[in-house]
Design a binder for these strands. Structure first.
Lengths: 235, 235
DNA sequence: CTATATTAGACAGTAGAGCTACCCAATTTT
DNA sequence: AAAATTGGGTAGCTCTACTGTCTAATATAG
Protein backbone atom coordinates (compact mmCIF):
# COMPACT_ATOMS: atom_id res chain seq x y z
CA UNK A 1 0.00 0.00 0.00
CA UNK A 2 1.09 3.57 -0.51
CA UNK A 3 1.21 6.30 2.07
CA UNK A 4 -2.25 7.61 1.34
CA UNK A 5 -3.83 4.25 2.01
CA UNK A 6 -1.75 3.91 5.17
CA UNK A 7 -3.21 7.24 6.16
CA UNK A 8 -6.75 6.21 5.31
CA UNK A 9 -6.68 2.91 7.16
CA UNK A 10 -5.06 4.41 10.26
CA UNK A 11 -6.79 7.76 10.39
CA UNK A 12 -3.47 9.56 10.73
CA UNK A 13 -2.87 12.46 8.30
CA UNK A 14 -0.28 11.92 5.61
CA UNK A 15 1.77 14.87 6.82
CA UNK A 16 1.90 13.37 10.28
CA UNK A 17 2.98 10.00 8.91
CA UNK A 18 5.79 11.71 7.08
CA UNK A 19 6.74 13.41 10.31
CA UNK A 20 6.78 10.09 12.12
CA UNK A 21 8.95 8.63 9.37
CA UNK A 22 11.42 11.46 9.85
CA UNK A 23 11.34 10.91 13.59
CA UNK A 24 11.98 7.22 13.04
CA UNK A 25 8.81 6.06 14.69
CA UNK A 26 8.19 4.10 11.52
CA UNK A 27 10.69 2.33 9.28
CA UNK A 28 10.78 3.62 5.71
CA UNK A 29 8.75 1.76 3.14
CA UNK A 30 10.47 -0.06 0.31
CA UNK A 31 10.97 2.46 -2.47
CA UNK A 32 9.64 1.17 -5.77
CA UNK A 33 10.76 4.29 -7.55
CA UNK A 34 11.97 7.79 -6.78
CA UNK A 35 8.54 8.96 -5.78
CA UNK A 36 6.86 5.79 -4.67
CA UNK A 37 7.22 3.59 -1.64
CA UNK A 38 5.37 0.52 -0.56
CA UNK A 39 4.11 -0.08 2.99
CA UNK A 40 2.65 -3.25 4.46
CA UNK A 41 0.58 -4.34 7.44
CA UNK A 42 3.67 -4.23 9.61
CA UNK A 43 3.87 -0.50 9.04
CA UNK A 44 0.19 -0.13 9.74
CA UNK A 45 0.52 -2.02 13.00
CA UNK A 46 3.48 0.07 14.01
CA UNK A 47 1.67 3.25 13.21
CA UNK A 48 -1.34 2.26 15.29
CA UNK A 49 0.91 1.29 18.16
CA UNK A 50 2.81 4.57 18.03
CA UNK A 51 -0.38 6.56 17.85
CA UNK A 52 -1.83 4.77 20.84
CA UNK A 53 1.27 5.45 22.89
CA UNK A 54 1.19 9.11 21.93
CA UNK A 55 -2.50 9.93 22.09
CA UNK A 56 -3.86 7.46 24.62
CA UNK A 57 -0.95 7.23 26.99
CA UNK A 58 0.40 10.69 26.28
CA UNK A 59 4.02 9.74 25.65
CA UNK A 60 6.23 12.22 23.85
CA UNK A 61 7.41 11.42 20.36
CA UNK A 62 10.98 10.94 21.53
CA UNK A 63 9.94 8.58 24.33
CA UNK A 64 7.79 6.68 21.91
CA UNK A 65 10.78 6.29 19.62
CA UNK A 66 12.80 4.82 22.47
CA UNK A 67 10.02 2.41 23.34
CA UNK A 68 9.69 1.21 19.75
CA UNK A 69 13.43 0.92 19.37
CA UNK A 70 13.60 -1.16 22.51
CA UNK A 71 10.80 -3.31 21.18
CA UNK A 72 12.80 -4.02 18.03
CA UNK A 73 16.08 -4.67 19.72
CA UNK A 74 14.85 -6.97 22.44
CA UNK A 75 12.17 -8.75 20.51
CA UNK A 76 13.85 -12.06 21.26
CA UNK A 77 14.10 -11.96 25.02
CA UNK A 78 10.82 -11.02 26.57
CA UNK A 79 11.82 -10.10 30.05
CA UNK A 80 14.31 -7.47 29.09
CA UNK A 81 11.50 -5.32 27.87
CA UNK A 82 9.96 -4.86 31.25
CA UNK A 83 12.04 -2.75 33.64
CA UNK A 84 13.18 -0.87 30.54
CA UNK A 85 13.40 2.87 30.56
CA UNK A 86 9.94 3.34 29.21
CA UNK A 87 9.41 6.92 30.23
CA UNK A 88 8.20 6.54 33.76
CA UNK A 89 8.64 10.07 34.89
CA UNK A 90 10.75 13.13 34.18
CA UNK A 91 13.89 11.57 35.58
CA UNK A 92 17.13 13.29 34.91
CA UNK A 93 20.52 11.68 34.87
CA UNK A 94 22.08 10.78 38.19
CA UNK A 95 23.71 13.98 39.33
CA UNK A 96 26.50 12.26 41.17
CA UNK A 97 29.03 11.27 38.49
CA UNK A 98 31.45 9.73 40.94
CA UNK A 99 31.76 5.98 40.93
CA UNK A 100 32.81 5.66 44.51
CA UNK A 101 30.83 3.19 46.61
CA UNK A 102 27.72 4.99 47.79
CA UNK A 103 25.43 4.22 50.60
CA UNK A 104 22.27 2.45 49.45
CA UNK A 105 19.49 4.81 48.39
CA UNK A 106 15.96 4.37 49.75
CA UNK A 107 15.12 2.66 46.47
CA UNK A 108 17.95 0.19 46.96
CA UNK A 109 16.80 -0.58 50.48
CA UNK A 110 13.24 -1.08 49.33
CA UNK A 111 14.28 -3.36 46.50
CA UNK A 112 16.43 -5.54 48.67
CA UNK A 113 13.77 -5.66 51.37
CA UNK A 114 11.36 -6.92 48.74
CA UNK A 115 13.93 -9.40 47.54
CA UNK A 116 13.78 -8.22 43.97
CA UNK A 117 16.45 -8.56 41.33
CA UNK A 118 16.53 -5.24 39.53
CA UNK A 119 18.98 -3.75 37.10
CA UNK A 120 21.37 -1.28 38.69
CA UNK A 121 20.73 1.24 35.97
CA UNK A 122 16.94 1.19 36.16
CA UNK A 123 15.65 4.77 36.12
CA UNK A 124 12.79 3.62 38.31
CA UNK A 125 15.19 3.64 41.23
CA UNK A 126 15.66 7.38 40.89
CA UNK A 127 11.92 7.88 40.63
CA UNK A 128 11.37 6.17 43.94
CA UNK A 129 14.19 7.92 45.73
CA UNK A 130 13.41 11.37 44.38
CA UNK A 131 9.71 11.17 45.11
CA UNK A 132 10.31 10.02 48.65
CA UNK A 133 12.59 12.99 49.17
CA UNK A 134 9.98 15.37 47.77
CA UNK A 135 7.26 13.94 49.98
CA UNK A 136 9.40 14.46 53.03
CA UNK A 137 10.23 18.00 51.95
CA UNK A 138 6.52 18.65 51.86
CA UNK A 139 6.04 17.36 55.37
CA UNK A 140 4.78 13.87 54.74
CA UNK A 141 6.53 11.23 56.81
CA UNK A 142 7.45 8.74 54.10
CA UNK A 143 10.39 6.41 53.76
CA UNK A 144 11.06 3.17 51.96
CA UNK A 145 9.21 1.23 54.65
CA UNK A 146 6.07 3.08 53.74
CA UNK A 147 6.38 1.67 50.25
CA UNK A 148 6.84 -1.94 51.26
CA UNK A 149 3.15 -2.88 51.23
CA UNK A 150 2.76 -1.03 47.93
CA UNK A 151 5.60 -3.15 46.61
CA UNK A 152 3.78 -6.32 47.59
CA UNK A 153 0.72 -5.16 45.72
CA UNK A 154 2.91 -4.31 42.74
CA UNK A 155 4.06 -7.92 42.73
CA UNK A 156 0.46 -9.10 42.47
CA UNK A 157 -0.19 -6.61 39.71
CA UNK A 158 2.85 -7.79 37.79
CA UNK A 159 1.60 -11.35 38.08
CA UNK A 160 -1.66 -10.34 36.49
CA UNK A 161 0.29 -8.64 33.75
CA UNK A 162 2.41 -11.68 33.03
CA UNK A 163 -0.67 -13.87 32.98
CA UNK A 164 -2.04 -11.78 30.14
CA UNK A 165 0.95 -12.79 28.06
CA UNK A 166 0.60 -16.51 28.59
CA UNK A 167 -1.77 -17.12 25.72
CA UNK A 168 0.38 -15.34 23.16
CA UNK A 169 1.94 -18.04 21.05
CA UNK A 170 4.46 -16.03 19.09
CA UNK A 171 7.22 -14.53 21.25
CA UNK A 172 7.15 -11.45 19.07
CA UNK A 173 3.48 -11.13 19.78
CA UNK A 174 4.26 -11.50 23.43
CA UNK A 175 6.78 -8.69 23.48
CA UNK A 176 4.37 -6.33 21.82
CA UNK A 177 1.67 -7.25 24.29
CA UNK A 178 4.07 -6.65 27.13
CA UNK A 179 4.68 -3.13 25.93
CA UNK A 180 1.02 -2.43 25.43
CA UNK A 181 0.03 -3.79 28.80
CA UNK A 182 2.79 -2.08 30.68
CA UNK A 183 2.34 1.32 29.16
CA UNK A 184 -1.26 1.66 28.08
CA UNK A 185 -2.61 0.20 31.27
CA UNK A 186 -0.87 2.76 33.43
CA UNK A 187 -3.55 5.43 33.17
CA UNK A 188 -6.18 2.77 33.77
CA UNK A 189 -4.54 1.51 36.92
CA UNK A 190 -4.24 5.05 38.22
CA UNK A 191 -7.88 5.64 37.34
CA UNK A 192 -8.84 2.52 39.25
CA UNK A 193 -6.87 3.68 42.24
CA UNK A 194 -8.62 7.03 42.24
CA UNK A 195 -12.01 5.43 41.97
CA UNK A 196 -11.17 3.00 44.73
CA UNK A 197 -10.09 5.96 46.84
CA UNK A 198 -13.31 7.80 46.13
CA UNK A 199 -15.29 4.72 47.02
CA UNK A 200 -13.43 3.95 50.23
CA UNK A 201 -13.25 7.59 51.23
CA UNK A 202 -16.97 8.15 50.70
CA UNK A 203 -17.63 5.43 53.23
CA UNK A 204 -15.06 6.58 55.72
CA UNK A 205 -15.78 10.30 55.56
CA UNK A 206 -19.43 10.60 54.62
CA UNK A 207 -20.20 13.94 53.14
CA UNK A 208 -22.69 16.09 55.07
CA UNK A 209 -25.61 15.71 52.71
CA UNK A 210 -27.75 18.81 52.25
CA UNK A 211 -31.00 17.24 53.48
CA UNK A 212 -29.20 15.72 56.45
CA UNK A 213 -31.25 14.72 59.45
CA UNK A 214 -28.51 15.09 62.00
CA UNK A 215 -25.31 17.11 61.50
CA UNK A 216 -23.42 13.87 60.92
CA UNK A 217 -20.38 13.37 63.07
CA UNK A 218 -18.22 10.41 62.20
CA UNK A 219 -18.48 7.25 60.12
CA UNK A 220 -22.13 6.94 59.15
CA UNK A 221 -23.13 4.57 56.40
CA UNK A 222 -23.54 6.72 53.35
CA UNK A 223 -23.21 6.60 49.61
CA UNK A 224 -21.17 8.91 47.42
CA UNK A 225 -22.80 11.79 45.63
CA UNK A 226 -21.84 13.58 42.43
CA UNK A 227 -18.40 14.95 42.78
CA UNK A 228 -15.76 15.20 40.12
CA UNK A 229 -15.66 17.76 37.40
CA UNK A 230 -14.21 17.58 33.94
CA UNK A 231 -10.86 18.08 32.30
CA UNK A 232 -7.81 15.97 32.68
CA UNK A 233 -4.49 16.08 31.01
CA UNK A 234 -1.08 15.19 30.01
CA UNK A 235 -0.78 12.72 32.74
CA UNK B 1 8.43 38.05 53.39
CA UNK B 2 8.82 39.65 49.98
CA UNK B 3 8.99 37.90 46.67
CA UNK B 4 12.75 37.63 46.62
CA UNK B 5 12.81 35.78 49.91
CA UNK B 6 10.02 33.54 48.69
CA UNK B 7 12.25 32.80 45.76
CA UNK B 8 15.29 32.15 47.92
CA UNK B 9 13.60 29.80 50.33
CA UNK B 10 11.85 27.83 47.59
CA UNK B 11 14.55 27.80 44.96
CA UNK B 12 12.10 28.99 42.32
CA UNK B 13 13.23 32.01 40.25
CA UNK B 14 11.39 35.26 40.87
CA UNK B 15 10.27 35.47 37.24
CA UNK B 16 8.72 32.02 37.55
CA UNK B 17 6.92 32.97 40.76
CA UNK B 18 5.47 35.96 38.99
CA UNK B 19 4.38 33.66 36.19
CA UNK B 20 2.70 31.35 38.68
CA UNK B 21 0.96 34.33 40.26
CA UNK B 22 -0.39 35.30 36.87
CA UNK B 23 -1.48 31.73 36.26
CA UNK B 24 -3.21 31.70 39.63
CA UNK B 25 -1.19 28.87 41.06
CA UNK B 26 -0.50 31.17 43.99
CA UNK B 27 -2.79 33.73 45.60
CA UNK B 28 -1.50 37.29 45.47
CA UNK B 29 0.34 38.60 48.50
CA UNK B 30 -1.10 41.44 50.53
CA UNK B 31 0.05 44.67 48.94
CA UNK B 32 1.64 46.99 51.49
CA UNK B 33 2.21 49.68 48.88
CA UNK B 34 2.21 50.11 45.14
CA UNK B 35 5.44 48.20 44.75
CA UNK B 36 5.49 45.95 47.75
CA UNK B 37 3.59 42.86 48.70
CA UNK B 38 3.90 40.56 51.66
CA UNK B 39 3.91 36.74 51.45
CA UNK B 40 3.72 34.24 54.28
CA UNK B 41 4.44 30.58 54.94
CA UNK B 42 1.16 29.66 53.37
CA UNK B 43 2.43 31.01 50.07
CA UNK B 44 5.69 29.20 50.50
CA UNK B 45 3.91 25.94 51.17
CA UNK B 46 1.71 26.43 48.15
CA UNK B 47 4.65 27.19 45.97
CA UNK B 48 6.48 24.08 47.04
CA UNK B 49 3.40 21.99 46.46
CA UNK B 50 2.83 23.43 42.99
CA UNK B 51 6.47 22.93 42.08
CA UNK B 52 6.38 19.32 43.17
CA UNK B 53 3.28 18.62 41.11
CA UNK B 54 4.87 20.26 38.08
CA UNK B 55 8.44 19.02 38.24
CA UNK B 56 8.17 15.71 40.08
CA UNK B 57 4.86 14.48 38.81
CA UNK B 58 4.99 16.33 35.50
CA UNK B 59 1.57 17.93 35.62
CA UNK B 60 0.88 20.84 33.32
CA UNK B 61 0.45 24.29 34.81
CA UNK B 62 -3.24 24.33 33.96
CA UNK B 63 -3.85 20.93 35.53
CA UNK B 64 -1.94 22.02 38.58
CA UNK B 65 -4.16 25.07 38.84
CA UNK B 66 -7.25 22.83 38.81
CA UNK B 67 -5.78 20.60 41.48
CA UNK B 68 -4.97 23.52 43.74
CA UNK B 69 -8.35 25.10 43.16
CA UNK B 70 -10.04 21.83 44.07
CA UNK B 71 -7.90 21.66 47.17
CA UNK B 72 -9.15 25.08 48.26
CA UNK B 73 -12.77 24.51 47.48
CA UNK B 74 -13.15 21.12 49.07
CA UNK B 75 -10.86 21.57 51.99
CA UNK B 76 -13.67 20.75 54.39
CA UNK B 77 -14.88 17.42 53.04
CA UNK B 78 -11.96 15.09 52.56
CA UNK B 79 -13.43 12.43 50.42
CA UNK B 80 -14.53 14.70 47.63
CA UNK B 81 -10.95 15.34 46.78
CA UNK B 82 -10.27 11.82 45.72
CA UNK B 83 -12.00 10.80 42.49
CA UNK B 84 -11.59 14.40 41.41
CA UNK B 85 -10.51 15.24 37.92
CA UNK B 86 -6.88 15.34 38.78
CA UNK B 87 -5.43 15.01 35.35
CA UNK B 88 -5.34 11.28 34.88
CA UNK B 89 -4.85 11.17 31.15
CA UNK B 90 -5.50 13.23 28.06
CA UNK B 91 -9.23 12.66 28.20
CA UNK B 92 -11.38 14.80 26.01
CA UNK B 93 -15.00 15.63 26.63
CA UNK B 94 -17.58 12.94 26.01
CA UNK B 95 -18.28 13.14 22.31
CA UNK B 96 -21.87 12.02 22.65
CA UNK B 97 -23.76 15.13 23.71
CA UNK B 98 -27.12 13.41 23.72
CA UNK B 99 -28.70 12.76 27.08
CA UNK B 100 -30.70 9.77 26.00
CA UNK B 101 -30.30 6.64 28.12
CA UNK B 102 -27.19 4.86 26.95
CA UNK B 103 -26.09 1.34 27.40
CA UNK B 104 -23.58 0.95 30.22
CA UNK B 105 -19.99 1.47 29.11
CA UNK B 106 -17.32 -1.09 30.00
CA UNK B 107 -16.29 1.26 32.79
CA UNK B 108 -19.83 1.26 34.17
CA UNK B 109 -19.95 -2.51 34.09
CA UNK B 110 -16.62 -2.79 35.82
CA UNK B 111 -17.61 -0.32 38.51
CA UNK B 112 -20.87 -2.04 39.27
CA UNK B 113 -19.20 -5.45 39.24
CA UNK B 114 -16.77 -4.13 41.83
CA UNK B 115 -19.65 -2.68 43.80
CA UNK B 116 -18.17 0.78 43.87
CA UNK B 117 -20.02 4.04 44.29
CA UNK B 118 -18.47 6.42 41.81
CA UNK B 119 -19.56 9.81 40.56
CA UNK B 120 -21.24 9.70 37.18
CA UNK B 121 -19.09 12.49 35.89
CA UNK B 122 -15.75 11.01 36.87
CA UNK B 123 -13.33 11.35 33.94
CA UNK B 124 -11.72 8.13 35.05
CA UNK B 125 -14.64 6.28 33.51
CA UNK B 126 -13.69 7.55 30.08
CA UNK B 127 -10.07 6.60 30.66
CA UNK B 128 -11.04 3.02 31.35
CA UNK B 129 -13.45 2.73 28.47
CA UNK B 130 -11.20 4.41 25.93
CA UNK B 131 -8.12 2.44 26.85
CA UNK B 132 -9.99 -0.84 26.65
CA UNK B 133 -11.16 0.10 23.17
CA UNK B 134 -7.63 0.97 22.12
CA UNK B 135 -6.25 -2.28 23.45
CA UNK B 136 -8.80 -4.25 21.48
CA UNK B 137 -8.03 -2.24 18.36
CA UNK B 138 -4.45 -3.28 18.75
CA UNK B 139 -5.35 -6.93 18.98
CA UNK B 140 -5.27 -7.51 22.70
CA UNK B 141 -8.28 -9.38 24.02
CA UNK B 142 -9.25 -7.09 26.89
CA UNK B 143 -12.62 -6.24 28.34
CA UNK B 144 -13.87 -5.06 31.69
CA UNK B 145 -13.60 -8.55 33.13
CA UNK B 146 -9.86 -8.41 32.52
CA UNK B 147 -9.72 -5.41 34.81
CA UNK B 148 -11.66 -6.95 37.70
CA UNK B 149 -8.62 -8.36 39.52
CA UNK B 150 -6.79 -5.10 38.93
CA UNK B 151 -9.73 -3.35 40.54
CA UNK B 152 -9.45 -5.56 43.61
CA UNK B 153 -5.79 -4.66 43.93
CA UNK B 154 -6.70 -1.01 43.51
CA UNK B 155 -8.97 -1.36 46.52
CA UNK B 156 -6.09 -2.60 48.60
CA UNK B 157 -3.90 0.21 47.34
CA UNK B 158 -6.55 2.76 48.23
CA UNK B 159 -6.74 1.33 51.72
CA UNK B 160 -3.02 1.86 52.14
CA UNK B 161 -3.49 5.40 50.91
CA UNK B 162 -6.26 6.15 53.38
CA UNK B 163 -4.23 4.67 56.20
CA UNK B 164 -1.54 7.24 55.51
CA UNK B 165 -4.05 9.94 56.30
CA UNK B 166 -5.15 8.57 59.63
CA UNK B 167 -2.49 10.26 61.70
CA UNK B 168 -3.14 13.73 60.33
CA UNK B 169 -4.95 15.64 63.01
CA UNK B 170 -6.00 18.72 61.12
CA UNK B 171 -8.55 18.03 58.35
CA UNK B 172 -6.84 20.64 56.22
CA UNK B 173 -3.61 18.80 56.67
CA UNK B 174 -5.40 15.63 55.69
CA UNK B 175 -6.70 17.04 52.44
CA UNK B 176 -3.29 18.23 51.42
CA UNK B 177 -1.81 14.86 52.21
CA UNK B 178 -4.50 13.20 50.17
CA UNK B 179 -3.54 15.24 47.14
CA UNK B 180 0.14 14.60 47.62
CA UNK B 181 -0.30 10.89 48.09
CA UNK B 182 -2.70 10.45 45.22
CA UNK B 183 -0.72 12.40 42.70
CA UNK B 184 2.92 12.24 43.66
CA UNK B 185 2.81 8.55 44.36
CA UNK B 186 1.57 7.68 40.89
CA UNK B 187 4.97 7.58 39.23
CA UNK B 188 6.28 5.59 42.17
CA UNK B 189 3.54 2.99 41.92
CA UNK B 190 4.15 2.63 38.21
CA UNK B 191 7.87 2.33 38.87
CA UNK B 192 7.16 -0.40 41.41
CA UNK B 193 5.01 -2.22 38.89
CA UNK B 194 7.75 -2.12 36.29
CA UNK B 195 10.32 -3.37 38.72
CA UNK B 196 8.00 -6.13 39.86
CA UNK B 197 7.49 -7.05 36.22
CA UNK B 198 11.21 -7.12 35.60
CA UNK B 199 11.71 -9.27 38.65
CA UNK B 200 8.93 -11.73 37.85
CA UNK B 201 9.77 -11.82 34.18
CA UNK B 202 13.44 -12.48 34.81
CA UNK B 203 12.47 -15.60 36.66
CA UNK B 204 9.91 -16.75 34.15
CA UNK B 205 11.89 -16.07 31.01
CA UNK B 206 15.53 -16.28 31.97
CA UNK B 207 17.74 -14.50 29.53
CA UNK B 208 20.29 -16.56 27.63
CA UNK B 209 23.46 -15.36 29.34
CA UNK B 210 26.45 -14.79 27.05
CA UNK B 211 28.77 -17.29 28.75
CA UNK B 212 26.01 -19.88 28.65
CA UNK B 213 27.01 -23.51 28.90
CA UNK B 214 24.08 -24.84 26.98
CA UNK B 215 22.02 -22.82 24.48
CA UNK B 216 19.35 -22.52 27.15
CA UNK B 217 15.94 -23.59 26.05
CA UNK B 218 13.17 -22.87 28.50
CA UNK B 219 12.80 -21.89 32.16
CA UNK B 220 16.21 -22.25 33.75
CA UNK B 221 16.78 -20.72 37.15
CA UNK B 222 18.60 -17.50 36.56
CA UNK B 223 18.97 -14.02 37.92
CA UNK B 224 18.49 -10.78 36.06
CA UNK B 225 21.41 -8.97 34.55
CA UNK B 226 21.95 -5.33 33.70
CA UNK B 227 19.29 -4.21 31.33
CA UNK B 228 17.68 -0.86 31.27
CA UNK B 229 19.10 2.19 29.63
CA UNK B 230 18.62 5.84 30.44
CA UNK B 231 16.13 8.52 29.55
CA UNK B 232 12.59 8.73 30.72
CA UNK B 233 10.09 11.45 30.33
CA UNK B 234 6.95 13.32 30.58
CA UNK B 235 5.10 10.39 31.90
C1' DC C 1 1.08 9.50 -25.71
C1' DT C 2 -0.29 13.45 -23.53
C1' DA C 3 -2.92 15.46 -19.58
C1' DT C 4 -4.04 15.12 -14.93
C1' DA C 5 -3.41 13.49 -10.39
C1' DT C 6 -0.33 11.44 -6.79
C1' DT C 7 3.56 10.87 -4.39
C1' DA C 8 8.24 11.18 -1.76
C1' DG C 9 11.05 14.10 0.29
C1' DA C 10 12.57 18.44 2.03
C1' DC C 11 11.79 22.51 4.50
C1' DA C 12 9.35 26.44 6.42
C1' DG C 13 5.67 27.80 9.24
C1' DT C 14 2.37 27.43 13.17
C1' DA C 15 0.32 27.08 17.81
C1' DG C 16 0.69 26.23 22.49
C1' DA C 17 3.28 25.44 26.77
C1' DG C 18 6.51 27.04 30.07
C1' DC C 19 9.45 29.87 31.22
C1' DT C 20 12.81 34.05 31.04
C1' DA C 21 14.39 38.77 30.27
C1' DC C 22 13.59 43.36 30.23
C1' DC C 23 11.47 47.75 31.33
C1' DC C 24 9.41 51.22 34.21
C1' DA C 25 7.70 53.69 37.86
C1' DA C 26 7.36 53.54 42.77
C1' DT C 27 9.25 52.93 46.79
C1' DT C 28 12.93 51.42 50.36
C1' DT C 29 17.24 51.54 52.08
C1' DT C 30 21.58 53.79 52.78
C1' DA D 1 19.90 62.44 47.52
C1' DA D 2 21.74 58.07 45.50
C1' DA D 3 21.47 53.23 44.97
C1' DA D 4 18.96 49.11 45.23
C1' DT D 5 14.72 46.49 45.19
C1' DT D 6 10.06 45.56 44.02
C1' DG D 7 5.57 44.82 41.50
C1' DG D 8 3.44 44.64 37.33
C1' DG D 9 3.43 44.14 32.70
C1' DT D 10 4.93 42.83 28.07
C1' DA D 11 7.75 40.71 24.87
C1' DG D 12 10.67 37.08 23.61
C1' DC D 13 12.75 32.50 23.77
C1' DT D 14 12.98 27.37 23.39
C1' DC D 15 10.80 23.12 22.69
C1' DT D 16 7.27 19.99 21.01
C1' DA D 17 4.14 18.26 17.69
C1' DC D 18 2.39 19.00 13.89
C1' DT D 19 0.82 21.17 9.28
C1' DG D 20 1.40 23.37 4.75
C1' DT D 21 3.78 24.21 0.72
C1' DC D 22 6.94 23.25 -2.95
C1' DT D 23 9.29 20.35 -6.48
C1' DA D 24 10.34 16.87 -9.41
C1' DA D 25 9.24 12.33 -10.57
C1' DT D 26 5.90 9.01 -11.54
C1' DA D 27 1.33 6.75 -12.10
C1' DT D 28 -2.96 6.64 -14.34
C1' DA D 29 -6.79 8.04 -17.54
C1' DG D 30 -8.29 9.05 -21.78
Amino acid sequence: MRISELSRSSGVPVATIKYYLREELLPAGVATSATQAEYDEHHLRRLRLARALITVRGLSVSTTREVLRALDEHSTDTHLLFGLALGAVPTEEPDCPSDQPQEPSPADQLISALGWEISEKAPTRATVTDTLATLRDLGLPADWRTLLPYGRLAERTAELDLAQLEDAADPLERVERAVLLTILLEPVLMALRRMAQENASAKRYPRPEEPADQPADQPVEQAAGGTADGAAEQD
